[in-house]
């Protein structure tokens, strides 16, 4: 068992374990913190696959910025396990059924997927390194890249417009 394989299993267990904890934690603040640890584990996987740029950007954008906003909102709403309203039994059952359906669809989709049976490429491939990624983004994929930047710009303008409404 080489170090890489060991790291792979460790990160997988960490990712799955914390993802489960996100769902079953009673306190929403704990859920957010477990979600952050899930992001860390996934970034670790990216780095194992030699996609360093995506790994670190995942941390900066999701764990560092978006989750902070989540934490803001949840801390200010002051949700507690005690103040949580009792949920209807039928609602719980419906939740279980729909969750099970999603699992079914995912298993079916993965079973027929092409990547099935292929091992993950660890420490291989150069495309994830920042220089190659930049070249690919600005030459081969420049049109989708620019279109997505326009999407972000419009989202930003929208946020400013909503924020200005009060004045």
């Amino acid at each position: 068992m080489s170090v890489t394989v060991f790291l792979f299993y460790f990160l997988s267990v960490l990712a799955l374990g914390s993802a489960i904890m996100v769902v079953i934690s009673r306190n929403p603040v704990y859920s957010v913190l477990w979600l952050i640890s899930t992001f860390f584990a996934i970034s670790g996987h990216y780095i194992l696959m030699n996609a360093q740029f995506i790994g670190i950007v995942n941390l900066i954008v999701y764990a560092g910025a978006i989750m902070v906003l989540f934490l803001f909102v949840i801390m200010l709403m002051n949700l507690n396990a005690e103040s949580e309203p009792k949920k209807n039994k039928w609602l719980k059952l419906a939740g279980v059924v729909s969750g099970g359906c999603l699992l079914l669809v995912m298993v079916a989709a993965l079973k027929s997927a092409e990547v099935k049976g292929e091992l993950v490429q660890v420490k291989e491939g150069e495309i994830g390194l920042i220089e190659n990624l930049g070249k690919a983004l600005f030459t081969d994929f420049v049109v989708p890249f620019e279109i997505s930047s326009i999407l972000f710009l419009s989202a930003m303008v929208g946020a400013v417009v909503i924020g200005k409404k009060g004045d």
Partner: peptide, 25 residues
């Protein structure tokens, strides 16, 4: 000497918020 050195610094700096937020809450 990783080839994303500066981004790594940014990543860690953006984690620094959690110490303050968690402690304060």
């Amino acid at each position: 000497d990783i080839n994303i050195g500066i981004l790594y610094i940014f990543g860690v700096v953006s984690m620094g918020v959690y110490g303050i937020m968690i402690g304060g809450w």
